[in-house]
Computed example of a mutant assay.
Amino acid sequence: MLVDTRWSAWNEEIEVQVTEAAALGPAAGLVGAVLSEAESACSLHRGDAEIHAVNLAQGLPVRVSVRLAGLLRSALWVARMTDGVVSPLAFDEPPSSVPSIHPEPTFADVQIDDATVLAPWGVSFDIGDTAKADTADRAAALVAHELECGVLVRVGGNVATAGHCPAGGWQVPVPGDGAVELPAGTALATAGADRTRASEGVGGGWEQVSVMAGDALWAYAAAASSQRRNLGAVAWLDQQELAARLVDYDGRVYTTCGWSHPHAA
């Protein structure tokens, strides 16, 4: 029997489903603790977040917590997997119309040695979105391990599962397409329209992108990257062998080969 609970945290709706009724309270407590730890590490909306020390360092090495180092590594992994399309770096000033004599720093210039971070001068980190996907994965794995039950954790548009699967699989709603079945240990991420980029003529070819993957971090990375790839996103997702559903601004639906039978993702 599935039981669930929902609440708001980190500017997102949080949902936890478990396969054992007695595990719901402890599961919610574990998920809440993982969320709180990640938010206090990297939320730019919190004045006491650890990430601010890194962003203020401007070319100087900073020792950080193990959790923030892990979240930064996840964000850099996303950047590598998407060829820099989804980058953790935000520049302090808009690019000048006058070419610089120095090359513009990229995510590849960031160094993390153990828990010491060295970022290029002139850039800062904005890793909230990748951190939420990473946290969904981490929280689901922790609940399944500690409570020995099946669990689904949703943080905003990121859904991660772990532990044994309920009969019929995890049924996860996809806006405009009913529900899809997630096998145990898989994930789904849905990215909505980036209307700011669309109005500026930068990417923005999709109203919505939903992607299934082995974990929420990769699912988020693929969905967010597809938002910036326009029509090339469908071919890119197929190359990655990912099940995905994309909706353009006219309501037309495109799917990859794997989405025809998404339960097999």
Rank of each mutant, 00 (worst) to 15 (best):
I127W: 00
V151P: 04
L89M: 05
L147P: 03
G205L: 11
E13S: 06
A243S: 15
A139N: 08
I14A: 00
C149N: 08
S226W: 02
A33V: 07
S124D: 00
D250N: 11
G205Y: 10
A38E: 04
A221Q: 09
A244G: 13
R154N: 04
V34F: 02
V85C: 01
R6K: 12
V66H: 14
P166A: 04
V211W: 04
T256A: 11
S226P: 03
G156V: 06
I112N: 00
S226N: 04
A90E: 02
R138M: 13
R195S: 12
E50L: 06
S124I: 01
L60Y: 03
E104Q: 13
A136W: 05
H145V: 13
R80D: 14
L147I: 14
T135Q: 02
A79I: 14
V174K: 03
A139Q: 02
P175Q: 15
G59D: 05
G47L: 11
G205W: 05
V78N: 02
Y249I: 15
H102S: 09
Q208M: 15
A49V: 12
R138V: 15
I127D: 00
A9V: 01
G232C: 10
V117S: 00
D215L: 05
G214D: 14
E12K: 13
G214P: 04
P94S: 06
D114F: 02
I14E: 00
D248A: 11
C165R: 14
A144K: 06
A69R: 03
S225H: 07
R197N: 10
L35H: 01
V180E: 00
P26F: 06
A243F: 05
A21D: 08
D48C: 13
M212A: 11
V110S: 08
G178Y: 04
V123M: 03
G29C: 11
N230G: 08
L182I: 12
A265E: 02
A75M: 06
D137H: 06
V159D: 05
T19P: 09
T82M: 07
A27D: 03
G122A: 12
S36N: 08
E146R: 15
Q240L: 10
P173I: 12
V98S: 15
N55S: 11
G192H: 14
S97D: 09
A38Y: 04
Q208S: 15
L56S: 04
R228A: 15
G258P: 07
R229G: 09
A198T: 10
G185Y: 10
D92A: 14
V211L: 09
H45D: 11
Y220W: 10
D83Y: 04
P166W: 00
A219R: 04
R229E: 09
L35I: 14
L147Y: 01
V209P: 06
S97M: 10
T196M: 10
S43V: 11
